[in-house]
Amino acid sequence: MSQLLPTLRLSRSEDRIDTSIRGSNLVLDVESVSGIGGLRMTWGQSPRWSRLVININLRGLESMKVVAGNRQLRFSLPYGDRYPTPWEIRHSKDVDAWRPLLKEGVEAPRILRRASGVSVQLPIDGWDVDGMVVEWVDFYR
C-alpha cells in the first residue's frame, strides 16, 4: 500500500492543515481561523487509506459537507448534547432524495466532540474516487 500523501488546497489562506498517516488512516489536523472554510483534496487514484480523520478546532459544526464522486455526505454537531445529530447521505442517482445514514452502518461516519474540537471519521475504503471536497461552517461565534 502506497503511503503517499494527497495534494491539498485550503479555501482560506489563513487556515492551516497538518497531514499525516497513522496506521491505515489519513489524518488531517485543521485549524480554521474564521470557522468557515473548506479544502480540496486529490490523490490520483482510489484512496489508499481505510479511513479519513478530520480533526478541526471548532466547538461544533453547523454543517459539514463532503463530496466525493457520486457521494455527498452532510452532517452537523451542535455545541450541546441536547439535540440529535443528523446524518444524511445522497448519491447522485438520488437527485432529490436525502436518506438517513444508520449510525451503526459500515459506511457511517463518526463525529466526536473533543476538548480540542471536533473529530470527523469517514470510512473511505472502497470509494472509487480520486479526490474530494470538504466544506465546514462553525456555529455563529
Rank of each mutant, 00 (worst) to 15 (best):
E31F: 10
S20E: 14
V33I: 13
G44K: 04
N55C: 09
G38S: 00
S46K: 12
I17L: 14
L4W: 13
P47M: 01
R12W: 08
T42W: 02
S32E: 01
S11I: 09
V30P: 07
G44C: 05
G35W: 00
S34N: 09
S20L: 12
N55Q: 13
S46P: 14
S11L: 11
G38C: 00
D18F: 02
I36E: 09
T42Y: 02
I54D: 04
L39G: 03
R48I: 13
N25V: 07
P47Q: 01
S24F: 07
R51Q: 13
W49Y: 15
S20K: 15
L26S: 08
L52G: 06
M41H: 04
G38Y: 00
R12A: 09
S13I: 06
S32D: 00
V27I: 03
R22C: 13
G35Q: 00
N25D: 15
W43T: 15
Q45S: 13
I54A: 04
L8K: 09
V53T: 08
S20Y: 14
W43V: 15
R51D: 11
S24E: 13
D29E: 04
D29V: 02
L28C: 15
G35R: 00
G37N: 03
L8Y: 12
P47L: 01
G37K: 02
V53R: 07
R51Y: 13
E31W: 11
D15R: 05
N25A: 12
L10H: 01
S32F: 00
T19R: 02
L8S: 14
T19M: 04
I36M: 08
S13D: 05
E14P: 14
W43M: 15
S50T: 06
S11N: 14
L5M: 06
S13Y: 03
P6F: 03
L10A: 02
S13T: 07
R9H: 12
W49T: 12
R9K: 14
M41T: 06
I21A: 04
I54S: 04
S34C: 10
S46D: 11
M41G: 04
L8H: 11
D15W: 06
R51L: 10
V33F: 11
R48P: 09
D29F: 00
L8C: 15
R48W: 11
